[in-house]
Design a protein around this nucleic acid. Structure first.
Length: 567
RNA sequence: CGGGGCGUGGCGCAGUCCGGUUUAGCGCGCCUGUUUUGGGAGCAGGAGGCCGCAGGUUCGAAUCCUGCCGCCCCGACCA
């Protein structure tokens, strides 16, 4: 492709709004342009890469028996109402304003299940793997980091339909392996974590993550073994605070200036492991008091799972007063104004001699024995794991890292098939809901993650198989030296005819401009043709990744590039 | 949705506090000519902006006031 006639608008200066290297480079290399917050156009150079990624996804999902669909982005809202996801999605789902009853699909479980209901009737046609690689629309509250989090984006979305739970395990495992192949082929360094299935519903769930300071997810990763989990579900080995050998009676004491754990520790010389922090949440409109040890942070995802609630939120100040009789800072498990459910973190199991709020502003109780004085409805792992704590598998310290979520695989189960009535008949003629799995990959994120780890201060460094071109031909001073132009034109034709995808910089630009653009665009091989080289019977090949330069005889260059391409 | 920042030729910015010598400027890019030509060239000439939008204050508004819109960052949120 001749650069003189094609549109690859490179930028010398850094766009002001881009912070992430991948975002900066995609703009500078003419891959994308922003149209609105979270909405991007892929320009031809970027679209080439996008198509390569899509092809890899297609090949690997086809290889496990996937069948590609093309599904509508416009959906009737009724189907989303049947699975209760209009409410679950909330503002994330776009609603069409001038046509009642239409929404833009943020994902496609419902649509897949709809078609399964229409046509899957027998166990004999199961299992199936159905997938799509298409645009999804999500009204993200805050799009950011270029294509990393957009309101419109590509997703490879696969769904498995099985007649048994064992079958689901197999389908899930197939995707697990396919995902590893996909990310390996794309040269992306990832790790796999156990994850929460969140609003999707379902059982087992794993995420494919890429470590990055710009990542929006937080993961706990063991430094020794292969334990890795999204912080939403991560656990660690921590000691319970245990019982102390004394039997003092519960007693209130004034604490007018101590509302936080730290203030209590400071003003009353208390030990953090004798303090029980109380927080109140509203779970599906019912209040729950949660006790945490000291400054341990409550993990809302774990709480939601424990309570099996559709929605949870912290209680408002007026609700605190209503249920407990006190304001924040003086709340505790004893003498609550109303008889509300109380649960506690595992670290408080059987604890005594504890200090906690007295449910009277400005007072705390001491010598609380949770077994004697409070009615605890259950003890659960409710805390957020901290860096340096012990791995639940091997005991080595865990570290906490930021990561980008590239892919997510779930065992959905029967949530959607039950809600939408997608059933099949088994060998005995009994009707069952189809057992489903759901497997997503953020297509643009693959590109951004690749660039995050494959660039230098000059630009992108493409590698097979995502490289938008195989080689980049640079003719230096072509206008001045006819022999340079002639050789370039010949090489261009011959390389193209031998199947090399070639970018040809035939512009009337100075060598410096061409070199810098070539490094920015980052094609693996640069073939540099100049008068100097021709006089030596050579052209020069520069390998972008290493910066290595080789003089190659003119009659050997085609062979060399062809060989490189075969590797 | 809370907090903060920003909006001035295609891009990056100055000017805004303190209204009037501002005909609204600079760098990059772009166009013409010319000289250059192995790491983002020099010279000369040139095109391009109702200063986000709408009101208001004023003799006079890019500049002050009000409202709205957009974009970015932090937080909340997020299959």
């Amino acid at each position: 492709m001749k650069l003189s006639k094609n549109f690859i608008p490179t930028l010398k200066e850094l766009p002001a709004d881009a912070l992430m290297p991948s975002h900066q480079l995609m703009l500078r290399a003419g891959m994308i342009r922003q149209l609105a917050a979270g909405v991007f156009t892929f320009l031809p150079f970027g679209y080439r890469v996008l198509k390569k990624v899509i092809n890899i996804l297609r090949e690997e999902i086809d290889a496990i028996g996937g069948q590609e669909f093309f599904m509508p982005a416009l959906n009737p809202i009724e189907i989303w109402e049947q699975t209760n996801r209009v409410e679950a999605m909330g503002d994330v789902m776009f609603h069409i304003k001038n046509r009642d009853g239409l929404v833009l699909a943020p994902t496609h479980e419902e649509i897949i299940t709809f078609h399964a209901r229409q046509h899957i009737q027998s166990y004999k046609v199961l299992p199936q793997i159905w997938y799509q690689i298409q645009t999804k629309f999500r009204n993200e509250p805050r799009p950011k980091s270029g294509i990393m989090r957009g309101r419109q984006f590509f997703m490879k979305d696969a769904y498995s339909l099985d007649s048994s739970w064992e079958g689901l395990d197999i389908s899930y495992q197939k995707h697990y392996e396919a995902y590893k192949k996909i990310f390996d082929r794309c040269n992306i360094k990832y790790f796999i974590v156990g994850a929460s299935s969140g609003a999707m519903g379902g059982k087992q769930s794993q995420e494919f993550m890429v470590e990055s300071e710009f990542g929006e997810d937080t993961c706990a990763v063991c430094e020794k073994c292969d334990y890795a989990a999204n912080l939403e579900v991560a656990s660690s080995k921590v000691e319970p605070c245990g019982r102390i050998d004394n039997d003092l009676q519960i007693e209130a004491f004034p604490t007018p200036n101590a509302k936080t754990i730290d203030e209590l520790i400071e003003q009353f010389n208390l030990s953090e492991d004798r303090l029980a922090k109380s927080v109140v949440y509203i779970a599906d409109s019912k209040p729950v008091l949660i006790l945490m040890l000291g400054n341990d942070e409550l993990n809302e995802t774990k709480l939601q799972v424990v309570l099996a609630a559709a929605a949870i939120r912290p209680a408002e100040p007026n609700e605190l007063l209503q249920y407990t009789g006190a304001n924040a800072g003086s709340i505790g498990p004893v003498n609550l104004k109303e008889n509300i459910k109380i649960i506690a973190d595992n670290r408080l199991l059987g604890a005594n001699n504890m200090v906690s709020g007295a449910n009277k502003d400005g007072f705390h109780n001491k010598n609380i024995d949770l077994e004697r004085d409070a009615k605890i409805d259950g003890y659960f792992d409710l805390r957020v794991a901290q860096s340096g704590e012990s791995c639940p598998n091997c005991g080595a310290p865990i570290k906490i890292v930021n990561a980008i979520e590239l892919g997510h695989i779930f065992k959905l189960g029967t949530r959607y098939s039950e809600a939408l009535g997608a059933t099949f008949l088994d060998e005995k003629g009994e009707e069952h809901p189809i057992i489903m799995g759901s497997y997503g990959i953020g297509v643009e994120r693959i590109i951004a993650c690749f660039i995050e780890t494959h660039h230098d201060d000059k630009g992108i460094i493409w590698k097979k198989p995502l490289n938008p071109f195989d080689a980049h031909l640079l003719g230096l001073n072509m206008n001045k030296f006819e022999e340079v132009k002639e050789l370039c034109d010949n090489l261009y034709e011959e390389l193209r005819q031998s199947g090399i995808d070639l970018l040809y910089d035939d512009r009337n630009e100075s060598p410096g401009v061409k070199f810098n653009d070539a490094d920015l665009l980052g094609i693996p091989y640069q073939i540099i043709v100049s008068k100097k080289n021709i006089e030596a019977g050579c052209v020069e090949v520069k390998i972008r990744e290493t910066g290595e330069r080789k003089q190659v005889k003119i009659n050997e260059i085609i062979k060399l590039i062809r060989e490189q391409e075969k590797q």
